[in-house]
Design a protein around this nucleic acid. Structure first.
Lengths: 204, 204
DNA sequence: CATTTTCCTGCATGGTCATTCAAGATAATG
DNA sequence: CATTATCTTGAATGACCATGCAGGAAAATG
């Protein structure tokens, strides 16, 4: 495995990035199981052995892909993770995020959905990773709704935990439907409609 | 392939059903790509050769699994496919369906979600099947909302197509979240919450 | 320039995969 | 009972899979 001690050569860095890029694309399209290291290496202009050399194993590459995907997702957030936005701000952000995804980041969304579905079962290698990520998102939403109920900007007779799950479910499902049928599913429009309705419902 | 001409023997019928049952369970857990014919055959108490004999190929088995899953899904519907329920009836049915799924049919839900995600890409073998199934559901919902708007039982200023996509997205996403984390996601509760809110929103 | 580290390749290995085939076992038919 | 169709198996095939290894190319270091 490279980079443990000694120097990092720029050629190696470029190759690794090329491999991760190739892996992201192929994993998103065919899943981890459906993608062989040979295909990834070829797309990156290298051999399977070179790939193993850089990442130790296929699992090592998967780990690197996950970290890179996280990095990209955070980068796009452009908002401190400990911010406390209002309901309207948060809803607006979800709609904008959907817009951005629909316009330029189909790949990352497909990676997320494909790998999530590949790891539904508790025994799966990345099950905990995706399960905990879902929990974190719901906890975040739960805090948002709890805050809004406390400061009076939303009605307080709805269970914030159920509400959080509902929102998370909608977002996840909307992305899935859009990935499956982008010609007939307008990711942005459905987000706009849903969050407008939700805002209305919470105001009542 | 069996059954083309001549008689069907009951032993063969039983074996085929055992194989389809085994395949449903394993496909639901690990996807089609992640499941080998050997594993399916073993779980059905047979050999890979016997499986190929009955279904011609792995793809043939997948087709049989899809048809059987359809059969089971329709069977549980217990409602004529051309019925024209009211909004409240339809919403109630969705909640009951979620209840039933959570209680006794996790497997079928997992099969649906796993195979859908495995066939997001247009090139995938079953892409069209799942895409068209999604379209049919949305068309069904669209008709429901259009009817409700026309007869005055729901407000008419919302796009029924967007609404239909929203509902489909929620249902799909809720199932996905529940499959990933059944301990923390209450499929029934989130359905109840969502459809109660939706009914309220449409009444306004 | 010599040495050391990093990078990469060609080749080999053992594993799993779906599928084929020949042949035997079981059941139905006349 | 004999024939015919159905069912099932065991062994073999070729394709792909992830990974290991030995040696060589490229780059950095002294």
């Amino acid at each position: 495995m490279a980079g443990v001690k000694g120097q990092v050569q720029k050629r190696g860095v470029a190759r690794r990035r090329a491999m991760v890029d190739a892996a992201i694309k192929l994993f998103a399209q065919q899943g981890v199981r459906g993608t062989g290291v040979a295909a990834i290496a070829e797309r990156a202009g290298a051999t399977p052995s070179a790939l193993i050399h850089h990442f130790g194993s296929k699992d090592g590459l998967v780990q690197a892909v996950l970290e890179e995907a996280d990095r990209r997702a955070l980068e796009r957030l452009s908002v401190p993770p400990d911010a406390e936005p209002t309901l309207d701000q948060a809803f607006d952000w979800f709609v904008r995020d959907a817009e951005h995804t629909a316009a330029t980041e189909r790949e990352l969304a497909a990676l997320h959905t494909t790998l999530t579905a590949e790891n539904l079962e508790p025994g799966a290698a990345l099950h905990t990773w995706f399960r905990d990520r879902g929990r974190a998102l719901r906890a975040h939403l739960n805090a948002l709704f709890t805050r809004a109920a406390a400061d009076g900007s939303a009605r307080a007779d709805l269970d914030p935990a159920v509400l959080a799950t509902e929102v998370a479910a909608f977002i996840e499902g909307a992305h899935l439907l859009w990935l499956l049928d982008p010609d007939e599913v307008d990711l942005t429009a459905v987000h706009r409609g849903y969050f407008a309705g939700l805002a209305e419902r919470l105001r009542t």
